[in-house]
């Protein structure tokens, strides 16, 4: 039995029953395959590490995309 993982995702609290890799997180959020970038606790998580790197309890995670702007 693993401990639940509580994170702040784009400013809102989220809880998962267990740790997930970033790839699994994106699947969970229906964002897989989208052109996006992820920051964890102020540091970039490179796309090349999505499959191995995992979220940890207390992480502050930002998932961003490009939108219209001037």
């Amino acid at each position: 039995m693993t401990a639940p993982v509580r994170i702040v995702l784009n400013g809102a609290p989220r809880e998962f029953p267990a740790s997930l890799t970033f790839s699994q997180l994106l699947d969970e959020l229906a964002l897989a395959g989208r052109r996006l970038a992820i920051e964890r606790n102020g540091e970039i998580v490179p796309r090349s590490r999505f499959a191995e790197a995992a979220i940890a309890d207390g992480d502050n995670i930002e998932v961003v995309i490009a939108v219209g702007g001037g």
Partner: peptide, 13 residues
Amino acid sequence: TVAIRRTNIGQNA
């Protein structure tokens, strides 16, 4: 130019 913004979680997938 484009802006960088948080993606909507769970919406408009």
